[in-house]
Design a protein around this nucleic acid. Sequence first.
DNA 1: GATAGGGATAGGTGCAGACATAAAGCAAGG
DNA 2: CCTTGCTTTATGTCTGCACCTATCCCTATC
Lengths: 234, 234
Amino acid sequence: MFAVTEAIGFREVKAEILRRITQGIWPPGSLLPGELALAEEFACARATVNRALRELDEAGLLDRKRKAGTRVRLAPLRQARFEMPIVRLEIERTGARYRYVLIKKELLPAPDWLAARLHLGQGSTALHLLCLHLADGQPWQLEDRWINAQALPQVLDQDFHHEGPNEWLIRAVPYSEVEVSFLAAAAAAEEVTHLGFDPGDPVFRVERMTWWQSVGITHVTLSHRRGHRMTTRY
Amino acid sequence: MFAVTEAIGFREVKAEILRRITQGIWPPGSLLPGELALAEEFACARATVNRALRELDEAGLLDRKRKAGTRVRLAPLRQARFEMPIVRLEIERTGARYRYVLIKKELLPAPDWLAARLHLGQGSTALHLLCLHLADGQPWQLEDRWINAQALPQVLDQDFHHEGPNEWLIRAVPYSEVEVSFLAAAAAAEEVTHLGFDPGDPVFRVERMTWWQSVGITHVTLSHRRGHRMTTRY
DNA sequence: GATAGGGATAGGTGCAGACATAAAGCAAGG
DNA sequence: CCTTGCTTTATGTCTGCACCTATCCCTATC
């Protein structure tokens, strides 16, 4: 038939609005036209404009309030998003051969710091695991994990000699809340022994805690090999 | 009139689907009913189901493909999102008094490593700045910044004695691409001098590079005070 | 002048229907 | 058996419409 006018998609609307923001046509703090006006300008439905604006809002570039309208954020919210895949996949993706070693496994009364952070009651017991993940035989990541044995009695049936607790937990246990921290620390004894650091060397650590409906499930400290970086691009 | 049946919102649909996933009703890898079937079950429009599913997909819990349908991810994509506010706001939010000091400002030929990482041509010049951000008089963050002086000639008119380059850049310069890295490093001379570290102490560093339409704008290394953690909860 | 009430407005979300598009899977042909 | 191409189908997206709700802001009142 006749050439149909290209349908305007939310991506195009989003791109154009982004352009106007980055090029200063709509400077920081300024008020954007209403959704209806934009829909008219772009010759599309308001829902399309809405989605574009909503995504830019989520990306931290806009500030939207009912009745007040949509404004360009004074300082764009800067955020970084990191993917943290399972170690095995991360290693295999580099082309290296993955190997896993269980170094220690012990059932202990939960230490105070653990009880406090996971909100455990007095006298709780926890399974403590120390595991090493290797890439082509080289130490890659040391995993120091505590698992709430009350909340997860089935954990005692696992031997964790051939599969890390990480992958088992992901498969077997849901979580509702997570806290992740990144930090730099001086290499401790176990990091010296298993990752080849010298005492006091800077180590990049990730700490992760998870809860399921307010009950603490697990706490893990992941220590990375020398020179490890967590990088993201967007 | 008569009691109107509560409209089903995408949040409710999302919550119910999430419940079925976390409680194992729809185990990892399983195929969910189609959007149409779900819309019928929840007595809502397909668009509502679509939004719920789309958000769960973005959260990394689902894997959606046209024609193939929607599946529960075998391993939920684990991701962490960090907000990185402007240092001043971060400090003021803790209730502390913010202070900023310019330590060094020099115009230099871009060093090779910088030229390589920002894709600068031979013989480029760059403005090098060293700044300290303090909270209640205590060093909080050391900012070691390089700015492409070719791409941003107006940077030479700034004196940066009363405002950090960070805030000026945010206000004045757009960017199209960003790379952020987190890492642990041994304290270097400047970190020892200005942040009170002992030589070799572990320092948490953030490196950030930005480009505007493929031309490098700035590279910054942010070194944090002792014990700094980057934390997120979700 | 301070405050409480009441539009008017902008975004938030819902619905039903339509077409677009990717891709799985079957079928025909080599 | 392998490749190519078609059909089918689930998701992706858009359109218009409607109603809800938070809020700004103006006005009436104390």
